[in-house]
Design a protein around this nucleic acid. Sequence first.
DNA 1: CAGGATATGTGCGTTTACGCACAGACAGGG
DNA 2: CCCTGTCTGTGCGTAAACGCACATATCCTG
Lengths: 293, 293
Amino acid sequence: MDNWNEIRTAYHVARLGSVSGAAKVLGVHHATVIRHIDELEKTLGAKLFQRHSRGYTVTEAGQDLLQVAQATDDQFSQLGNRIKGRGGEVTGELVITSLAIASAAMTSLLARFQAMHPHLIVRFLTDPRLFRLEYGEAHVAIRAGSPSSQPDNVVQPFARQRFAIYASRAYISRNGMPQDENEIVSHRFVGSDDLTINSPMIAWLRDHVPEENLIFRATDMTVMREATLAGVGLCFLSVMEAASHPELVEVIPSKEDWVVPWWLLTHVDLHRTAKVQAVLSFLKEEAKKATVI
Amino acid sequence: MDNWNEIRTAYHVARLGSVSGAAKVLGVHHATVIRHIDELEKTLGAKLFQRHSRGYTVTEAGQDLLQVAQATDDQFSQLGNRIKGRGGEVTGELVITSLAIASAAMTSLLARFQAMHPHLIVRFLTDPRLFRLEYGEAHVAIRAGSPSSQPDNVVQPFARQRFAIYASRAYISRNGMPQDENEIVSHRFVGSDDLTINSPMIAWLRDHVPEENLIFRATDMTVMREATLAGVGLCFLSVMEAASHPELVEVIPSKEDWVVPWWLLTHVDLHRTAKVQAVLSFLKEEAKKATVI
DNA sequence: CAGGATATGTGCGTTTACGCACAGACAGGG
DNA sequence: CCCTGTCTGTGCGTAAACGCACATATCCTG
């Protein structure tokens, strides 16, 4: 049974009782129908129909095929309706991935998006490893910094994450609040372990802070935040993140340069689906409302 | 969903996760697989797979298709096994049709054949109208006299029905037993209404019996038998049939000419099936054993 | 009884779908 | 680090499948 089209042809012949009727329904020439039946019977080694001048009547094998193929036809048409219909609605799973740094801002947004679509299951995956869109691991990825260069990814600008320099109240009470940028040089810092990263904050650190003052270096942004909260030193943190930690005080306010762009990435195969389009337009709309994330 | 082969191709791609693997299993070139997938997605208006350099991974629609087509594949393979396997066994229905005249001899034969195949349902249809093999109304037909000229029918010689001239005991007691064929001319006869039929018994009647003595004419053999039993006159009856009616006496024994051949007819589409072959060989074997039917 | 409508079946020319060859991309291994 | 194996993707020539025309048989109807 390795030619399902022949089964489909035989099904319509069995259903309608004639080659001509099946040919009309199938939109092919009746010679094609005869060829399909002959081929199918040859491979099966059994007759599906008895031929007579008024049409084809099924044998027992043909009756068996009729019932099986009837069910199959129903299943396939339902499947087609599901797939075609699913294009317009926002249901099923929506998998969004980002680095943990974005979770604070994203969680409330995604919660509201889910409330707008009750049948949607949101899976917000924040993992150290990068989920790969091209393997279908996520519908939408949120990336920071320079946009990815994958050719199959559709990249759109999302929000702009604004940074400022913070310190814990404990640190300030011990070391005093620097009054201007010149006093900064004598303070200790928490920062990225990799200083080659091309970012305006890293550049500012290189320009204004002696390397020996960068005493706590980490690769993960959450580690830096924890270190700052523990009073290790000053640190670049996002304005949004710092707002949820009252024990942090702003040492130097945000500058125009201290902004990291976020990008919304979708795989090109999923980008046009209604579900992905819905969440993309929602997130961009919300990002437009909120001036700072 | 009007191309089931494309669904089948997509099913194997979804199952194996790659175009190449599906192409190997399907025995086609991988370019064909790609074309099927592209065409199917175009008609559905939705992506079934996400393409990447390591293979194809299913989307939600592809996952849906995978499950439906998995079930379909199972159903079809089971169907194929049933149809192919059914070729070798004698089950289901066996429809045999004949004129009522043959029922007496056939019933016991068919009963024994059914006993040999417990899963067989025998439908022995004896109806005034002729069941038509080409419409699938019967597997085997039993016809008497000249073999049918239908080109789609396979005709085989079956048994030879031997005739003799009988009368009821009541008739003989009233009119006496004719001692030889010369006395026959003064007796009344029951016979066929159509004297143009080409048969040795009809010819004998024309030669030996005055037409005015053929006082009871019928088209149906059972009617003639009933008339003979009612004492109307002498009549050609089959030896087999007369043996089951003790009130009938043989007036003139059977001659070599008084034989009607029976034919086994099967439609060419069903002739090669094991079930039909089984009953044909059984009937021919039994006919060989019994010298007279 | 004749003619039209409808059915299957078949040879032939054309179109569609296929296989082939090659290119490009990526992961794994010596 | 290059090399190899495996994967997808695409243009092109060929072979298989298709539509067409015609033949034939049957049933229905006026």
